[in-house]
Design a protein around this nucleic acid. Structure first.
Lengths: 325, 325
DNA sequence: CAAGTTATTGAAATCGATTGCAAAAAAGGA
DNA sequence: TCCTTTTTTGCAATCGATTTCAATAACTTG
């Protein structure tokens, strides 16, 4: 492995000068600098950031830790947001995946003294995670007391969806929720009910089901709803993946999505555009949340004061799964 | 930031002893060890891996660099494979994303002296990337001279699909290919034609189209095919995403996928299970490729000899988009 | 109990880059 | 030319953990 000492020896100059050539070129004469650069190029020198970081006590790497058991669309979009902001500010990002047994992924970020950690969590992910305040951190989509966090505005999102259904003339609306443990489930459900009451639409318990974010379960729940003597003209579904189950159930019954039954999802997963009919959905503003998270983290790193909570709004994406009644 | 010196001073012992407590506890007496552990816990000590790595000249972090412009299913699945093997061997993985201008992502892995780099590339990603042989590396899904690599067995995959279509009685088969620049396109196309000839099925140029991996374009191409006086009973499509375009085109014409026209995709993206009818597809063995890539990298890291190329087979996943004629 | 072993500890060097300080070299001015 | 100012350089200490070597402490055992 080539070091500045190797280059220095070769050129019969001091390592200090070689170092300065890279870290503070203004302090080195034009002549020496070009000799060093040439020699370094020739020997295939790459600065050792490990040494450099030890000396400087700083890193320009931000870690994004996903609490999913596995990699997924969720982390992807957040990552894109974090990355764009990070790079604008001269930072690189690395993504780690902390599954059930892997507290390790978090700890290693701290031990590596990365510049900061952004923890991104859907609710399918692990419950808890231990930070030691060794480096700055921000949570995306999770509320932990006293910790910096970015949250989506579910109230606004569901509100948008409900307003739209009403505009389209729907009054008989069903709802498939996420699991009980979820903060989103609660908020989305509450907002759904509140809106129904506000509009003075009938809230039918038979049309309100609990799911678990997964298509398979939602498929069963939707069949139950379709077995009711009369069924709703529209379904609000707490995430897109469950909509795939709903689509299947509806189509198996010989009914048409968008015609017999309108559907609004939540999340805006990429394949929603490609199913037929294209899924109308409320976007989970992941990219924007990633951006905000990174800004929040950078503020901490630079010691600038910043509010501890930021709430980001998604928007309703009107496609083909909802039509006027 | 707490260091071993802080702990040492507090306990009035030498830093060496503190260090040994963590890195080689057998060399420290039971009594001292527990005192150190307690003190460290109390002070919130976390070893500084930067210092440790500098001294040891080793890292236990493997980097997976994606050459996609953005995060995607491709990298996800490869990452899961790499991760499982890595963790079995005491390594952690971090994922980086190299977009067009970001040679930087690769370089930073080298500068950080990570244990090794796995470069994963679909063909939507950037063309070239420069490694400096500072650390071991493996390419996934890309052929670079003299470099270690993992490739999928496209010949086997397409063969499986074609055998199945023939079994199901199809003889009139169309094909939508990927873009010209792609190694997969070439192989898949060649294999398709070879199989057609082998089976003595008619190869109709009108039924063979070039796509660009994207649904939108495939939608247009499929419409062209459907405009022919007679159209095929089955389509082999070079990736799943394009199948979504095919589905839409077919359905818009009032025809039914699986009934009027059978479709086989390639890749096994996750939503293929949830579209209606569920998509029959040939899997791109990403997870397995990730595992193999990691094994290959570990072999290099440990200095064990290993073949420079490994080819991994996918399999045909029979679902509902193909039926007997 | 003394000599020989073994278990524990500490001092000091090391990994590779950075930087304050001082020396040397170059440039400028009279 | 000689002195002052500015540029370039080199020396040596530093970041925090590890490890070799030597010293000391704690056991064994005849």
């Amino acid at each position: 492995m080539i070091t500045i000492y190797d280059i220095a020896k070769e050129l019969k100059i001091s390592p200090s000068t070689v170092s300065r050539t890279f870290s503070n070129p203004g302090l080195v004469s034009e002549k020496t600098r070009s000799r060093v650069l040439k020699q370094a190029e020739e020997m295939g020198y790459q600065v050792n950031l490990v040494a450099s970081q030890l000396r400087n006590r700083t890193s320009n790497i931000i870690a994004l830790v996903s609490l999913q058991g596995t990699w997924s669309w969720f982390t992807d979009d957040v990552a894109n947001g974090v990355q764009d902001v990070a790079r604008e500010n001269g930072y690189e990002i690395v993504v780690l995946n902390a599954n059930k047994e892997h507290q390790e992924s978090i700890t290693i970020c701290e031990k590596m003294r990365f510049a900061g950690i952004i923890v991104a969590a859907t609710e399918l992910g692990r419950d808890t995670v231990y930070l030691n305040d060794v480096i700055p951190s921000v949570y995306v989509n999770r509320i932990i007391e006293d910790q910096y966090r970015i949250l989506p505005d579910d109230v606004h999102g569901v509100g948008q969806g409900m307003d739209y259904l009403r505009e389209m003339g729907h009054t008989r609306i069903g709802f498939i929720n996420g699991p009980e443990s979820s903060m989103h489930s609660e908020i989305r459900y509450d907002t759904f009910v509140k809106k129904m009451q506000e509009f003075q639409f009938p809230v039918k318990p038979d049309w309100i089901k609990r799911g678990d974010w997964l298509a398979e379960t939602a498929y069963g729940r939707m069949l139950e709803i379709l077995n009711c003597r009369e069924y709703p003209t529209a379904m609000l579904v707490a995430n897109d993946q469950m909509c795939m189950g709903v689509y299947r159930a509806v189509q198996e019954r010989g009914l048409q999505i968008g015609k017999d039954i309108s559907v609004i999802g939540y999340d805006n997963v990429d394949y929603g555009k490609w199913v037929a009919p294209a899924l109308t959905t409320i976007s989970f503003p992941l990219y924007e949340m990633g951006c905000q998270a990174c800004k929040m983290l950078l503020a901490q790193i630079k010691g600038i004061s910043h509010p501890k909570e930021v709430i980001v709004r998604g928007e309703l994406l009107k496609r083909d799964s909802v039509m006027k009644v």
